[in-house]
Design a protein around this nucleic acid. Structure first.
Length: 659
RNA sequence: GGCGGUGUAGCUCAGGUGGUAGAGCAGCGGACUCAUAAGCCGCGGGCCGGGGGUUCGAGACCCUCCACCGCCA
């Protein structure tokens, strides 16, 4: 019988605008779900929305619509994001689902029957915005300590859950099961919280004040308080969602992923509720960190909330998934900035992984007619064996790290194989082997080892970057279905018969310019009046990639016009020391002088160039070549070798636009 | 105020049970050309927050001070 794995995200408040935090938790859960599915485990992955509460009621009233209609209107934004992020949830729960409400009522009745719920008078300072009471000590100058809004004194009869009864049992459970609350530092905090006497938990509100909620089965005048309603989703969802016939058997959850702000709620409220209902506790609750943006706390008022939709549009779903999990250990806070995203994208995805795929497939095209050769054991070396070993150990490493929710380490291990493969190419230098017919057998061995490494990478990447894995699979001509269990105990080196030709295709991760600040969403929510949003956030143009593939995609005129071409005159030219083909040019582009380093030294001597009229790209990002800054690029014809510089037919003014 | 954590190269961080400091990024230099001007190779004297102590020997153990962070009040 396969292992069961049940992972949850919190249910997100439907009134929120989805941001990087929502995306983070959900992506992490998705990676786990995909990973365990590939191993052949029976997986249930639940996410959803919290749709009750004061704020929804108020927002609906303001919009003059029914609260349910309000929820129905907001819900698709989340589902849409999950679709765009390739989130493979098995169940999407809404707390307004009638089946969920029925389960909540059943739970309340159970606890009531056991005498664990009682009624009492409660007086306290209430914050309408946060929907919670504060004690006298908390309130500062009549303001809510959390949101700084005015609080009001409210006295009402509420129902309470006898949470205090379970304090010792919970403490013991945490001590006996160190994996129950993670990371360690958070477990200590919870234990610290439990040092003081635990109070009973208020679980109801009078309908007169809050009507948008689930009615108490034993008191028609009250609805249940938001947490009781929300937490129960973790097993109510199993009851009626998804396709698994035996879904209820998934309880207890393998792991609840939560943000650190709602750890106490889960570790203490939820656990004691479960104890009261005599249900087993989840195996673990993992509190992950928060994202700051450019070093600052993310907030609507700052207007620096990262919009996942914008990031996906700019860099693609897989790059976004990769960055979030790679950048920061899962339990720690992390900082999000476009420049850190960009540099990781550029270095690890474009240069390391993307280019590895590109150069390997190119060599198969050039040296092996696009077919994957067999390895000849006679020609194998230690180099080959250590590559094989690293690849073969990868799957287990990833499993180890994912069991500890160390996503960043898992990705680090994957990148380690990428780097090793890149080194392998340089050490074996297939282009040299290709020149010597006697080395053909060795060449084939090398190419085989490379392709086989890419196959291992494809499978390893599948949970993290499903789209990329699918593309690599196609390029490699693999016929395996990577949406079904393929990992098992991990792939075996040499087990696969390559019978289809490989295809190079376009760049997996094309290089990008660093975008300007377009990733932040406007401070207003989608429900706000449209007049608050006048500025149009222009997406930053990205430079066209200089691909020479035959399958280069078509571009529009607007894209071409991003390239600023100018007529220029060469003023000075000299060879770059120790380089056979680089020349350092000083050119006049009309408005200014520029230094350009160009790889035209094999075709042209410096002295013959002075005074020549040429065409240059004037808005290319400066780059250093052999330590010398180049502030542009000269245009020349030729494939690999430069054959001719571009010039203009008639005499035109230096600095003229070329279009 | 109570409890806990952190402070190591420009940046982000690793450094089980003590033996004279490491990685990635950035920077500099080199050889090459299969590849997305990518990749590969080489180059790291940083009072390991300050002070004191234990020890033959401490970034690592103890004490103390300083700074920052988290949870609770």
């Amino acid at each position: 019988m396969p292992n069961r794995f049940y992972v949850t995200t919190p249910i997100y408040y439907v009134n929120d605008v989805p941001h990087i935090g929502h995306a983070y938790t959900t992506i992490a859960a998705d990676v786990l779900a995909r990973f365990y599915r590939l191993r052949g485990d029976d997986v249930f992955f639940l996410t959803g929305l919290d749709e009750h509460g004061q704020k929804v009621q108020q927002a609906a009233a303001k919009a003059e619509i029914d609260p349910q209609a309000h929820c129905d209107r907001l819900m698709p934004t989340f589902k849409d994001l999950w679709t765009k992020l390739d989130i493979s949830y098995d169940g999407f729960i809404r707390t307004t689902d009638p089946q969920h409400q029925a389960v909540v009522q059943r739970c309340l009745q159970t606890l009531h029957d056991k005498g664990l719920i009682y009624q009492a008078e409660y007086t306290g300072w209430y914050c309408t915005f946060d929907e919670r009471f504060w004690t006298e000590k908390d309130v500062e100058q009549g303001l809510c300590p959390d949101c700084q809004r005015p609080v009001e004194q409210v006295s009402e009869r509420n129902y309470f859950f006898r949470m205090s009864q379970f304090q010792d049992r919970l403490k013991k459970h945490i001590h006996v099961h160190p994996e129950f609350i993670q990371p360690d530092s958070r477990r200590n905090e919870v234990l610290g919280f439990l040092q003081k006497p635990l109070e009973d938990l208020s679980i109801s509100r009078p309908k007169s004040r809050l009507s948008w909620g689930i009615e108490l089965p034993f008191d028609k005048d009250c609805v249940t308080y938001v947490w009781f309603d929300a937490l129960v989703n973790y097993f109510s969802g199993l009851d009626y969602l998804g396709t698994h016939a035996n879904a209820p058997a998934f309880w207890p959850a393998s792991v609840h992923l939560v943000g650190k702000d709602i750890l106490t709620t889960h570790a203490v409220y939820w656990s004691t509720m479960l104890m009261g209902m005599e249900r087993p506790l989840p195996q673990s609750i993992f509190a992950h960190g928060w994202w700051t943006v450019d070093g600052e706390k993310m907030s609507k008022s700052r207007g620096n909330v990262v919009d996942p939709f914008a990031m996906i549009k700019e860099f693609g779903t897989d790059a976004f998934r990769y960055f979030l999990l790679r950048q920061v250990p899962f339990g720690q806070d992390g900082d999000f900035s476009l420049s850190s995203f960009h540099s990781r994208y550029q270095a690890e995805l474009a240069n390391d992984l993307g280019n590895l795929v590109s150069r390997t497939l190119a060599m198969l095209g050039n040296f092996s007619q696009h077919m994957v050769p067999r390895s000849d054991p006679q020609t194998e070396t230690d180099l080959d064996h250590s590559l094989q070993q690293t690849a073969s150990a990868l799957s287990e490493k990833i499993e180890q790290h994912l069991r500890a929710l160390e996503f960043h380490r898992a990705l680090e291990a994957i990148l380690g194989l990428v780097q090793m493969a890149n080194q392998y190419i340089d050490k074996t230098a297939p282009w040299i082997l290709a020149k010597d017919p006697e080395k053909k057998s060795r060449l084939q061995t090398v190419l085989f080892h490379l392709v086989e490494s890419l196959r291992f990478l494809t499978l390893a990447l599948a949970p993290f970057m499903p789209h990329t894995a699918e593309t690599m699979k196609t390029r490699l001509g693999l016929t395996v279905d990577i949406s079904t269990p393929t990992l098992g105990k991990g792939p075996i080196w040499g087990e696969y018969d390559y019978i289809h030709p490989v295809t190079k295709g376009t760049s997996l991760f094309p290089k990008k310019d660093l975008p300007s600040t377009s990733a932040h969403q406007p401070a207003s929510s989608p429900t706000a009046s449209p007049t608050t949003e006048k500025k149009i956030d222009k997406a930053t143009p990205q430079s066209p990639s200089a691909s020479t593939d035959s399958d280069t995609p078509l571009i529009g005129i607007d894209e071409f016009q991003k390239v600023q071409l100018k007529v220029a005159k060469i003023l000075e030219a000299e060879r770059v020391p120790k380089s056979s083909k680089l020349l350092k040019l000083q050119v006049d582009i009309g408005t200014e002088k520029r230094q350009i380093v160009a790889g035209i030294g094999k075709k042209y001597a410096p002295e013959e160039l002075i005074g020549k009229t040429i065409v240059v790209v004037a808005n290319l990002k400066p780059a250093k070549l052999m330590g010398i800054e180049s502030q542009g690029m000269v245009l020349a014809a030729g494939e690999k070798e430069v054959l001719s510089l571009l010039t203009v037919q008639e005499e035109v003014q230096t600095g003229s636009k070329v279009k």
